[in-house]
Write a protein that binds this DNA or RNA. Sequence first.
RNA 1: GGCGUCAUAGCCAAGCGGUAAGGCAAGGGUCUGCAAAACCCUCAUUCCCCGGUUCGAUUCCGGGUGACGCCUCCA
Length: 493
Amino acid sequence: MSTPLIRVYNTLQHAKVPLEPITPGKLGVYVCGPTVYSYVHIGNARTFTSFDVIVRYLRFRGFEVKYVRNYTDVDDKIINAAKASGEDPIALAARFVGEFEADAKALHLIAPDVSPKVSETIPEIVALVKTLVEKGAAYVSGGDVYFEVRKFPGYLKLSGKNLDELQAGAGEREQKGEVKRDPGDFALWKGAKPGEPSWDSPWGKGRPGWHIECSAMSSKYLGETFDLHGGGLDLIFPHHDNEIAQSEAASGKTLCHCWMHGGFLDLDGAKMSKSLGNVVQLRDAMKRVDPEALRYFFLGTHYRQALAFNDKMLADAETRMEYFYETLKKIDERVTGKDFGQGALHGDPERFIAQFDEQMSDDFNFSGALGVLSGLFAELNQLADKPPVKDKPMVGRTLVALRGVVTRLSKVLGVFDDVPADWLLRRRDRQVVAKGLDVAKIEGLIADRKAAREAKNYAEGDRLRAEAKAMGVEFIDSPQGTTWKVIAELATA
RNA sequence: GGCGUCAUAGCCAAGCGGUAAGGCAAGGGUCUGCAAAACCCUCAUUCCCCGGUUCGAUUCCGGGUGACGCCUCCA
């Protein structure tokens, strides 16, 4: 089978470029992780899911990926949150690392190979700052150390901004003070203030500035130059520009070959932000919608594109997940424990893998890949319910092969990787709770209807069906008896 | 003001020069005592507008219009 060349959109070049690993067969990937001062919101979750699928796909393609995603656990926001709650900043950060990991697991995010923390990287950060000072790229001022942006020739090459125009627009915010030589200079190291976490350094007690931690952690685990660096779109400036400046001024080498940025999740036509008060936490979203459905929703739009978050889309995603799982349940019942012998297949199940590859290799075209999935599941259903050929063993063999394809793709997407019957039941349980349904009553209706139908009293049977429907419950008749499901509707918060 | 992204059917969404994937919704059908699920069929002569390049443009270029983002913490 042909394996298409992977092309990735590189923010640095504003173009899709062929992925050329520094070391053949291997890839170093760094993704800017959460600042752990609160629970993650669904916007974070979208970005992390995007890179989760990207790393899974890269591995699917046979690359040995070293995946690093950090925790920023020393930061102004954490200190402020700790002040507000009266907690120790380090302890608060540690607590939210734990909460993040729980959320990440629930969302089916694979664990990175390394999840470094700022608090555990202080010696490397101090060494890096020291190097920058020694090379004349940074200077000490009071107890602080600043990076001197005017001395770094390629500054702002990622964002394409202009330093002078930037400062012209900054107005009152960044006046030239006593401490900084230039308003654009940024802190590598901040002198300690009372009540803040601090560490010893050649410049006295203090803590790292923003930006520097990622430079230190990426070089520690991936080397001075690595393949892919990811993060949200908002990190381009200043965070990634500053990372490039610090790292490249220190090493004299290119920090990263390819910079990838994920698009935002919008709520009510605007970016989610604290100031607008429209933040939805991931864990709250996962109470309302199945985590896999949430992943599927994220994957419905290309990772660089804005995605509007709303209840209708979420409900659609869950309905779609139900279709996938109903199909898989049916196939599994049809196929498990049976021997269909050896021989030819109907059609070519592997073509779906090729089509999937074609989409994903083109800058990870998630929605294109999902389109391929539709064809796969349609074929599965068609073969199971209306087989176009009479050769039953052949149909069985093809079903088995197709099911195998589904499994392989589900490992990349991180959806419908559960036991179908379990997933379906779990979803129904959640719907029952959300709607406050009385299961005993539903089963009572089913029993009454069974009796009515056995007495050929179909009018009564239909009346009972209608009664259930009024409650939001659908009866499903089959030769094995009557089961039921909750009519799709998103659970309210 | 500077930088950047985007504009495709009722809705969501691919498409990257060769004549519009996929999903939801809707309508019709098969199946069913009635349903549900599944399957089949229908559903954009057209891709915000105006120019240009080309044999050919939704796709490239120029100019509009509109939306969003970054420039302050942010995934």
